[in-house]
Computed example of a mutant assay.
Amino acid sequence: MGRPADIYLRFLQLTEALRGLPALPALDPLEEKILEFVARMRQKNERLSVRDMMAQSALGSPATLHARITSMREKGWLLLNDTEDARRKQVELTPAALRHFDKLAEAFTKAAKGS
C-alpha cells in the first residue's frame, strides 16, 4: 500500500472517471455541498425538511438554496416527499444518488487496495 497521499490521489482519479459516466447530470460546487449535507443527515437517520435546510446558512441564502434544491430535483439527485404536515416537504436522496455514493465507496476501496 502506498502513502496516504497516493491513495487519495488514486481515489481522485477514480472519482473523475465516475464523473464521465452518464448516470446523473453534474452538480455545481454548492449542489455537491448540499448533496453531502443531505447524505450525512440520512446517515444519521435524521429527517430533513426543506425548512431545516433553509436554516443552514452555511449552504447559502434561502433563495439560493431553494433554486439549488429545485435544480437538484430536476437533475435527479433529490426527492421531496410529503410529510404529515402538508406544508413541510422531506428532502431525500434519489435511488440514483444512493448508487452514486455506492460507486464512490467502491472507488475509495479500490484506491485503498492500490488496484
Rank of each mutant, 00 (worst) to 15 (best):
D52V: 07
R51D: 13
G60Q: 07
G60T: 05
A67I: 00
M72D: 04
A67Q: 05
R47T: 14
S61D: 04
A63D: 05
R73Q: 14
L48R: 05
R40L: 15
R73P: 05
A58E: 14
M54C: 02
M53Q: 03
N45G: 13
A67Y: 00
A67H: 02
M54E: 04
G60L: 03
A55Q: 12
R73G: 10
R47G: 15
S61V: 01
R73H: 10
A63F: 02
R42T: 13
V50Y: 07
V50Q: 11
V50I: 15
L79Y: 09
S57Y: 02
W77V: 00
R68H: 11
L48K: 05
T64S: 08
A58P: 02
M53G: 05
M41G: 13
L78I: 08
S49K: 05
S71F: 02
R73D: 04
T64Q: 08
M72N: 03
K75V: 05
M53I: 11
S71Q: 10
L65D: 01
S49A: 11
S49I: 08
K44Q: 15
S61Q: 10
E74P: 02
E74N: 13
I69S: 00
L79Q: 06
N45Q: 15
R51G: 10
R42M: 08
E74S: 14
G60N: 07
S57D: 12
R51K: 14
A63M: 07
G60C: 05
L79W: 07
A58T: 12
G60M: 04
T70I: 12
L78V: 08
R40A: 15
T70M: 12
A67T: 01
P62H: 06
Q56P: 03
R40K: 15
I69N: 00
N45D: 15
L48F: 12
S61M: 03
L65M: 15
R68M: 00
I69G: 00
R68F: 00
K75E: 09
T70G: 12
R51I: 10
T64I: 10
S49D: 05
K75N: 10
M72W: 07
T70L: 14
L59E: 01
R42Q: 13
L65A: 08
H66G: 06
M54K: 02
R68Y: 00
S61L: 04
